[in-house]
Design a protein around this nucleic acid. Structure first.
Lengths: 215, 215
DNA sequence: GTCTATATAATGATAGAC
DNA sequence: GTCTATCATTATATAGAC
């Protein structure tokens, strides 16, 4: 990802092409012929180097996870935050990886679970640190809150096209939609949505009712 | 959906089987042979009645949208709220439809846009009503806030498997995970996540900076 | 390591009998 | 309306030459 595709060895060119096409079109809609074509090699060479299409995806997944972990969570925490915009300007190659991860989450590929858990891990650290510093309120159920926040963030990324369309743009990464998205989200997490805790108490009551009635 | 599959006419059985299999496996992973098998007919009959696999999906989409609109938003607003649990107990057939919609959103089918917009429409009404009644705080950017809330809700549904796993269960619809999910979400939307507005002001400042610097 | 040529399997869709 | 038999296409993966 740090050099021109033409400078890479065939094996790396194939992996890079697979990363790009899997991310754009999804795993099942991408053919080995397309990958070979983009990498400038013959289809059988793809199989020769990686064994099968599935093993090729696994190789891409492994490569990406190694990249993500080496970044020490920089990309994972910032993936849907405002700073993502500036990060992507500085690291344009991260676009491909983000697109790959979003597509992989949609297709529920083998990397989806690793990514979800890894983002949870990183988010939990952010929450903990903020709680210590007093900038973040301590949740009643920290693990659940982290999981919900991650599901919200990744989910919004997966629905980025629809979200951007409602915000007057094409991609969530464009300046306009990203600004409206980030500000609306920050406002929600700063002031909340409800004016008092009646909804929360109502939800608690509803679950306590059904919880004792169902058994 | 209101009778046993065996009582339906072949055409309806095919549509029902397609709804079930498309929802479970996705459109592209479902074969006409599978649909025909589940409906108890021969594969060519599927084509004979619906023209093609894509037209069959369109027929299922149309059928579902008609169902959703006839429900006057009951299912759409409640799809990820606590009351979904009780709703599903009363209307078990809604499970198939929810699963279909979630899969369709993941695959970005033609119905995805309609559903996203329809849920936005319904959510906007809920927000407006709450604002009038004083139970919901008036957002600075109502349209964006609605879109974000919908993306969060639908996104969490799409990632329901991962979310449930982190919450100690298999499905988000199970009592345990649903309870923890609903309470964590309600707490977020009641008290927010941050203890003050420094993150919000920081985000505003960051966008104002990049907004004037980039050009 | 890399290619051309090909095997094999599965799919959506068609033809035509009943 | 419904079936059996089949076509045409496309995909992954293999065989073997260079």
């Amino acid at each position: 990802m740090s050099s021109d595709p033409g400078d890479l060895l065939p094996q790396a060119r194939i992996r890079r092409a697979a990363l790009e096409l899997f991310g754009e079109q999804g795993f099942h809609h991408t053919t080995i012929r397309q990958i070979a074509g983009l990498a400038g090699v013959s289809p059988p060479l793809v199989i020769h180097h990686f064994g099968s299409k599935h093993q090729l995806r696994q190789a891409v997944d492994d490569w990406i996870m190694a990249f993500l972990l080496s970044e020490k969570g920089t990309l994972l925490t910032g993936s849907v935050m405002p700073r993502a915009s500036s990060y992507l300007t500085e690291h344009p190659e991260a676009r491909l990886i983000m697109q790959y991860l979003i597509t992989a989450m949609r297709e529920d590929g083998t990397i989806a679970r690793q990514v979800f858990d890894q983002v949870c891990h990183t988010t939990a650290q952010v929450i903990e640190l903020g709680a210590e510093q007093g900038t973040i309120r301590e949740p009643a159920d920290p693990d659940a809150t982290v999981a919900v926040l991650v599901a919200y963030s990744l989910g919004a990324s997966m629905l980025g096209g629809h979200l951007a369309r409602r915000l007057g743009g094409e991609s969530l990464l464009d300046a306009g939609p990203m600004r409206r998205y980030a500000l609306a989200a920050m406002e929600l997490f700063t002031y909340g949505l409800f004016t008092d805790d009646s909804y929360l108490r109502g939800t608690r009551a509803a679950f306590d009712d059904t919880g004792s009635e169902d058994d």
